[in-house]
């Protein structure tokens, strides 16, 4: 008898071993899906390159992006200047690399701000309910009623003189010459504007997620079992809400770059001689007929970068949103 039982046991284990499936969870699934998505992987490569450029770009070129080569003005690509020079004799490659630094810095800072503000305000509204929630929702509605860029433009135009005054006051009070460089103020202005316009999307998302997750059965059962509030937040709310938030962050990263470029293009963002892709396009647009490469190059770089973030966002959305999948696994 005993022998038979052990034999059956062994056979069962053998079967189990044969048919054991690898352990799966949301993150592993998402990762495998993302790896399989060629478009998303390509985007990740592009994004890595852009980040690398932002970090080390200025060390890679022999020219400073402000250096004017008076012997080679408005040249098409040559061996000396691989991407040519603009009408002031500045090396286009150096300027594009410097512009990448601007774009990434703005995107990182403003996305972080949008993330912190959005999650805090959204969660606050969902948790407090009542008047606080109503106030949060109305504020979001108000900010989203305006076209995004138009609101950013309006804010930038109204805040700008205040920032300039602020800078002047700092210089006069503390006598720090470095603060007189208005480039810092341009950055601050853009951070402020994109900080204000960036969070409502995320706040709405987080609020909706928290509200709907709190109504799910597993949260109620956790409450019934007597789990503490922080445990529910850490173990149930955060992991489940994280997917959509990550997708939205990827999208808002590209969006922040685009808004910065638009503002700089319109003359409200980074001012010359600073480097920003949007501003470079605006500077060279007058000569599109005679020196098209001066417009095309920053334009292409901006386009490829933003496109990479869009495709990455799509890939993340497909990977992190299991409900998108139909039974056959087709989208």
């Amino acid at each position: 008898m005993a022998e038979q039982e052990t034999q059956a046991e062994e056979r069962r284990e053998l079967l189990n071993d044969q048919f054991r499936r690898p352990e799966r969870n949301l993150w592993k699934d998402a990762f495998t899906q993302l790896i399989a998505n060629r478009l998303a992987m390509g985007s990740i490569v592009v994004i890595f390159i852009v980040f690398f450029i932002a970090a080390f770009g200025p060390f890679l070129t022999p020219y400073d992006h402000l250096y004017q080569d008076w012997d080679n003005i408005a040249q098409p690509p040559t061996r000396l200047h691989p991407l040519g020079t603009d009408e002031l004799g500045r090396d286009m490659l150096s300027r594009i690399l410097a512009g990448g630094r601007t774009a990434i810095m703005v995107a990182v800072v403003t996305t972080t701000m949008a993330f912190v503000l959005g999650v805090l305000i959204g969660a606050l509204g969902a948790y407090m309910g009542g008047y606080v929630d109503a106030l949060v929702v109305r504020t979001i509605d108000f900010l989203q009623a305006f076209p995004h860029i138009l609101l950013a433009v309006f804010l930038a135009a109204t805040l700008k003189p205040t920032f300039i005054r602020f800078g002047d006051a700092l210089v006069q009070q503390y006598g720090i010459r470095a603060l007189g460089n208005t480039l810092y103020l341009d950055y601050l202005l853009i951070f402020a504007v994109l900080g204000i316009t960036g969070w409502p999307n995320l706040a709405r998302l987080v609020r909706g997620q928290v509200l709907s997750l709190r109504a799910t059965e597993y949260v109620s059962s956790a409450q019934v079992v007597g789990a503490k509030e922080w445990r529910i937040i850490v173990h149930h709310l955060v992991p489940n809400a994280l997917g959509p938030v990550i997708v939205s962050l990827s999208a808002s990263f590209g969006g922040a770059m685009l808004t910065e470029a638009s503002l700089s293009y319109l003359g409200l963002g980074i001012q010359p001689p600073g480097a920003s892709w949007g501003m470079m396009i605006a500077e060279n647009l007058v000569q599109w007929r005679y020196r098209p490469h001066l417009v095309v190059m920053p334009g292409m770089v901006l386009f490829v970068t933003v496109l990479a973030f869009t495709f990455l966002g799509d890939g993340l959305n497909d990977a992190l949103n299991p409900r998108m999948l139909t039974p056959s696994g087709q989208k």
Partner: peptide, 18 residues
């Protein structure tokens, strides 16, 4: 279409003109 819609207007305009 995603790619074309991603291009900001102020980039696409000069490109189309060119």
């Amino acid at each position: 279409t995603v790619a074309v819609s991603t291009i900001p207007t102020f980039v696409l305009a000069p490109m189309l003109m060119i």
